[in-house]
Design a protein around this nucleic acid. Sequence first.
DNA 1: TTGTAAGCGTTATCAC
DNA 2: GTGATAACGCTTACAA
Lengths: 342, 342
Amino acid sequence: MVKTVNDIRDLAEVLGLSITTVSRVINGKAKKYRISDETQKRVLLAAKQYNYVPNKLARGLKLSRTDTLGLIIPDISNPFFADIAQSIEKEARSKGYSLILCDSGEDHVLEKELIALLLSHKVDGIIIAPVGTDYSYIVQTYNSGMPLIVIDRCITDMGLPYITSDNYQGGNDAVNYLISMGHRKIACIQGIPKSMPTIERVRGYRDALLSHGIHPDESLIVGDNYNTENGYKQTRILFSMENPPTAIFALSNLIGLGVIKAVEEMGLRIPENISLISFDEQPYSAFLGTPMTTVGQKKNEMGQLAVNVLLRYIGNKEYRKKLVNMTLKTNLIVRSSVRKNV
Amino acid sequence: MVKTVNDIRDLAEVLGLSITTVSRVINGKAKKYRISDETQKRVLLAAKQYNYVPNKLARGLKLSRTDTLGLIIPDISNPFFADIAQSIEKEARSKGYSLILCDSGEDHVLEKELIALLLSHKVDGIIIAPVGTDYSYIVQTYNSGMPLIVIDRCITDMGLPYITSDNYQGGNDAVNYLISMGHRKIACIQGIPKSMPTIERVRGYRDALLSHGIHPDESLIVGDNYNTENGYKQTRILFSMENPPTAIFALSNLIGLGVIKAVEEMGLRIPENISLISFDEQPYSAFLGTPMTTVGQKKNEMGQLAVNVLLRYIGNKEYRKKLVNMTLKTNLIVRSSVRKNV
DNA sequence: TTGTAAGCGTTATCAC
DNA sequence: GTGATAACGCTTACAA
């Protein structure tokens, strides 16, 4: 009959050692306390044998450190965020951290609750892609001393650290390209209007038009959500105009999918009847009915950087004074969804 | 100067009440202990005012219950798993549980570590879509009393509870359809060969052929991974045969994408030169170069059921004796990636 | 080189 | 109606 070991206490008992010694060996402080090699080996062996795993709750309670990070994103089924979540999880784990995943569903009331939830879990830090409507709670959390970093849906002028794509450049590049292909009547289907990616992409859109002497037509800047629905609806509406645009700039990959759906349903074709550029590259982008011209983002880098900056905030009080604001270049991936407009 | 409240102790002090009373109110046991309405209101108000959030570590340590579930999946960037993760997170949270997300990256050594990690976090239960190579550790964990449920990559005959799609039916339906369209030389690009979804889908494939008097050609059953790479490579190899198949059955959406890539690169077309059916429906399936015929799965239901069954295991020792094995029907979504072969 | 004991923040048991 | 206190499993001074 083998004794069941649940505790460091049980383990110590089995070994005939004190809890302290066992704890020291388990935590790799053997040589620091000059614990004999033999004792060390015995402990490690027994730990493995009895399948002992230290209780992180007790450990966290004692150390006020849980080796856990919180991640809040608006929609994990959006492959953009799934990719980011993957790189964050991987990087975090490689550094010894676990990840509590929260999907806010683009609901800022829920988002607020989720932050409180993560706080109650005593996570060591939070990575958040906010819904982008109400920041007060996030700012408050950060100012209270909780290490936190914002990704993608960044918030400027609030004193929050963030890592995001150069959305202005992405929007600007896309529209400049459309103009260079002869388009002048270019619609823009937005994501959440108040969110920074949308604001910046639209700013890039406007500036590209203006720099070519085209006055932005406000009736062509439409939509209010990053999802497929919005892309579909706005496209149908755009095409109900007496004089529809010749090109659409979709501010997310999901919006782009919605555009395609609407276009197909109307019996039209991309790019013959309408040109399209969509933000965010996806594995399927190249294989769509018309291979899509997209604005690629450094998702992997964004995730890795977020984790690493956050860990520095966690580990280094001094570093926390440094407000990290990073912007990652985008790249236009030209395929065949834009035709030359003559 | 407002006192900072970190503790239930601090809160009690501020209120001039005992810790016990405060704890009771916070946990909604006010009436059980006949705590006066006024006291109750004061406590609740102060808690809100001082932004008090109970420490889940301490709570978990005391109650041996963390209100936390662990989720292990092989690849969150695969939209199939992203969708499942979303439904699991949502359902779990609605029931008061948080989710620790782990991506095993299809690595069963890592998977084993991740289980130990979740154990050390004292999660109340585990939902796992295993890599599908080595089950021993999972079985051991389950047998040790940890509530656990397997999804998608199920393991039969091991006494583990699971919820999965009817992969046999899905494979059978797909191939029956291909045969009904006149195809006889049908290739099958597998996922991980030892994993149950692959085994079952291939069994469905074989039986469909046999039931039509076609003897399965082993050289047409190829591949070893659910990813895009595998789909691409195997397609290139299949087409290097002197007599390539007229149809391909891809066992995942990612494999399907790889097939498309290879086909395009070879200057061929779907379905003119090769017909294709791919497992798992995705938002983009309808918008691919050739709208894809797919086998749809009940992802949302799978996630919700997994959480609910797991929670019953957690809450009800009796129920744990009942081995839940659920199989969810698939549905063939016919589009235009299969042509009539004459 | 090893051990003793206090304390992390919470809840449950028992008392008043 | 409310309060004091032990205990959950761990780490870490402080002792020896």
